[in-house]
Amino acid sequence: MNLEIINDDHLLPAEREDWIRKLVEFAAAKLELPAETEMSISLITDDKIREINREYRDKDRVTDVISFAIEDDEADEWPNFRELEDELDIPRNIGDLFIAPGHVAEQAKTYEHSFDREFGYTVVHGFLHLNGYDHIEPADEQVMIKLQEEILDAYGLKR
């Protein structure tokens, strides 16, 4: 997995970046993604994620994670990226996650989870969105949440 982590404001210690990388690589192996698959995770403030949420999702509130999947089915005006990747022999890029560690810490307290469990949940949840999983329909939610829990449990981040 070719993962770029952007932590310019040092919202998490540098060693946490290795933890994130290992979790994403573990989840990518579970989904059997090619090793050269690309994505990014930007760690941002609550104010910045609220701004992004307002601008792109019309929701004026802080959230834990926002995912921008490159292969989103709703973007009909975009080219077929999988075909282009194959044609040009370039790695697949699944998209970008924006995560607000401050909000994740608040949620950990609210749900009485450790920060590791809540942050892991957030990373895996967003990662699954980048890979086409969703939870809008109950049947899709069941599939996504089951896979999410399998990954977290296998990684050692049990409830």
Rank of each mutant, 00 (worst) to 15 (best):
D72Q: 05
T110K: 15
Y56L: 14
M39C: 13
H10N: 14
E25L: 10
D18G: 14
R21A: 02
P91N: 01
K146C: 02
H129F: 02
E74H: 05
L157K: 02
L97E: 01
Y133N: 04
A29P: 06
V123F: 07
F127H: 00
E77G: 06
F26W: 10
E141S: 11
S42D: 11
K22E: 14
F119H: 04
I99H: 08
L84F: 05
D86L: 06
G156I: 03
K30E: 13
R82A: 08
V65H: 03
I20R: 11
F81G: 08
R16S: 15
G95Q: 00
N7A: 04
I136E: 13
G102D: 00
N93V: 07
L147E: 06
V104T: 11
E87C: 11
D86G: 08
I44K: 09
E77S: 13
D47A: 13
R92Y: 10
W19S: 11
H135A: 09
G95W: 00
R16A: 12
A27Y: 02
R16K: 13
Y121N: 13
F119P: 09
R50K: 14
I44W: 06
E87A: 10
M144D: 01
L97R: 06
E141Q: 12
M39T: 10
G126T: 01
E51R: 12
E36R: 07
N131H: 04
K59Q: 14
V124P: 09
D72M: 00
E83G: 02
R117V: 14
V104F: 03
H10G: 08
K30T: 11
D134G: 14
N7D: 01
I44C: 12
L130I: 01
A14W: 09
L23G: 00
G156L: 01
K48E: 15
E32T: 10
M1R: 07
A154Q: 09
K48N: 09
Y111I: 03
V143S: 05
E15W: 12
A35H: 10
V143T: 04
Y111Q: 08
H129D: 01
D18H: 12
E141K: 13
D116T: 00
E32Q: 13
E25R: 15
E15T: 12
F98D: 02
H135L: 01
V124A: 04
H10Q: 12
E87F: 11
L88M: 11
D76V: 10
Q142D: 05
E141C: 07
S114A: 00
L43Q: 02
E38N: 12
A100G: 03
A29R: 13
D134M: 06
I70R: 13
R57T: 10
A105F: 03
A75Q: 08
V62Y: 05
D8N: 15
K22Q: 14
Q107N: 12
F115M: 13
E71H: 09
N93A: 12
P101H: 05
P138E: 01
R92Q: 10
K158N: 13
L31P: 01
V62L: 06
E87G: 11
E141A: 14
I70F: 07
A35I: 11
P34A: 05
I99C: 01
Q107W: 06
T122Q: 05
H135S: 09
F115C: 09
Y56F: 15
P13G: 02
F98P: 02
Y155N: 01
F119E: 05
I6N: 13
A154C: 04
E149H: 10
